[in-house]
Design a protein around this nucleic acid. Sequence first.
DNA 1: ACATTAATTATGT
DNA 2: ACATAATTAATGT
Length: 238
Amino acid sequence: MAEAPTHKTLPRLDESLLTHLPPFSRLEKRQIRKVLDLASSRRYDPGVAIFEEGHPAERFYMLLDGYVRVVRVTPNGEQITALHIPAGQLLGIARAIGRDTYPATAMTASESLVLSWPTSLWDTFVEDYDGFSTETYKTLGHRLGEMHNRVIEMTTQQVEQRVANALLRLINQTGRKVENGIEIDFPITRQDLSELTATTLHTVSRVLSGWEKRGLVESRRKRITVRDPHALMVLTQS
DNA sequence: ACATTAATTATGT
DNA sequence: ACATAATTAATGT
């Protein structure tokens, strides 16, 4: 609810922050310098909104560290998580798809570090910087495909398979290798998973408990690690 | 094959 | 101690 009081502009942005990120990777060092000088950076606590659905798209963002979940609110006021975005990707790029308002709300899933630029710069970025638009459209298309897949899953598959798919996607995009398997790199609740799979947190809880007994996954509070991804793959194909 | 309701327990500040 | 997260059982569609 309360806006984070800690609003610190970082001392100086290092050019190496952007040099390896797809949209900027083809830029000269001095171009990157210029881009950085136009950017403002901000740190977000977990669970706060970076921007909200329907609001005018004044800025677009680059997630430098952390994870963001893209959330939409249904007419009944229920939250639906559309997808998760890992560090190194752009968000709030409404302008790229010809919108002037944000199509969804972006909430931080973990503590996050974010750069942003005024949307008015979008067109000049696209013009001036080689590869900027092609790269962003690539990720945009990728995201679209994922959302579409989830729509298909919702109507065809049963819950156990849907959460299996959701988990697999999560560890693919935001997975971190640990000793027992792959852990989802940000705090995620059963509620979150249920929003991803269009079920209830109770069902998710039961499914997860079942898998835990079979040794497929491991979970403590807000943490899920997948021990046996392949077994989940098999589950989705029943 | 699920959701809903409700009661109970565990966990983090 | 308190709020939030997770489990579990019972009941409903």
